[in-house]
Amino acid sequence: MLALTFSTGMIDAVGYLGLDRVFTGNMTGNVVILGMGLAGAEDLPVLGPALALIGFLVGAAFGGRVLKGAAKGWSRRTTVLLVLVGVVIMGLSVAIFLDPEPTRPVALTLSTLLGTAMGVQAATARLIGVKDVTTVVITSTLTGLAADSVLGGGTGADSGRRSAAVLLILAGAGTGAALLTWHLGAGLLAAALITLLVAAVGARSPRTD
């Protein structure tokens, strides 16, 4: 799940910097951009964030439907869903390599499909249930890190995992931005390979069904 958090950072870097300022994993950012755009803020997109948000919800609903009744933890169904996410991201990276300067309609399609894939990933991570590692958002992770710290009156339990999640999404975003200087599709290709590797490793772990 930490590896997927890293890849989410790369995917969001591609979406925000390369696909008209659209977050495809971090829906909090998308909702904020959408709200400001609807209020008339200058040069902020509306259609892209709205479509990515809809795609994310569709993907999460699909993931929830597939995983309905599954026990917490890794299962054959979580493996299948993560393989699906990896294949979709891989396909989108290939499309960008073939068309490195997509038109606006193509870019909107790409960001919407990425949002859908990330919705599936988020639903899958939710069932796997690694505490504070949703793979797509770190606000709640930061809250837990601070509130449960010694300064917050806690014991600092789980601070290592929480800190790792924050640092990895940060590193992923930086890596994605750096890869953009080479090619728009490079970050997605790397994210797809990470996702498929995670699915392969998970498939070899003890399963719940």
Rank of each mutant, 00 (worst) to 15 (best):
L2P: 01
L4F: 05
F6R: 04
G9A: 09
I11D: 10
V14N: 15
G15H: 12
Y16C: 04
Y16K: 05
D20Y: 12
R21H: 12
R21N: 15
V22W: 00
G25S: 14
M27S: 03
G29M: 11
L34D: 00
G37A: 04
P45N: 03
P45Y: 06
G48K: 03
A52P: 02
A52E: 08
L53G: 02
I54K: 00
L57S: 02
G59V: 11
F62I: 10
G63F: 09
R65L: 15
R65Y: 14
V66Q: 12
V66D: 07
L67V: 05
K68S: 10
G69P: 11
G73D: 11
G73H: 10
W74H: 11
S75M: 13
R76F: 12
R77I: 03
T79Y: 07
V80S: 13
V80Y: 04
L81I: 11
L81T: 07
V83I: 13
V83Q: 03
G86R: 04
G86D: 07
V87F: 11
L92H: 05
S93C: 07
F97R: 12
L98N: 05
D99E: 08
T103G: 15
R104G: 00
A107Y: 15
A107Q: 09
L108G: 01
L110T: 00
L110A: 00
G115N: 09
M118S: 03
G119M: 08
Q121Y: 01
A123L: 09
T124F: 15
T124R: 13
T124G: 05
R126N: 15
I128Q: 01
V130D: 02
K131D: 08
D132K: 03
V133K: 00
T134P: 12
T134R: 08
T135H: 09
T135S: 09
T135C: 08
V136D: 00
V137S: 06
I138P: 00
S140C: 08
S140M: 14
T141E: 10
T143L: 01
T143W: 00
A147C: 06
G153V: 14
G154V: 06
T155S: 07
T155R: 13
A157M: 08
A157S: 13
S159H: 13
G160Q: 02
R161L: 15
R162A: 01
R162N: 02
V166F: 09
L167T: 08
L168K: 03
I169C: 04
L170P: 05
L170T: 14
A173F: 03
G176W: 04
A177E: 05
L179H: 03
W182V: 09
H183R: 14
G187I: 03
L189K: 02
A192I: 04
L193S: 05
L196R: 07
L196I: 11
A200E: 07
V201T: 10
A203P: 03
A203T: 07
A203S: 14
R204I: 02
R204Q: 02
R204A: 08
S205M: 14
P206M: 12
R207H: 15
D209V: 11
D209P: 12
D209T: 12
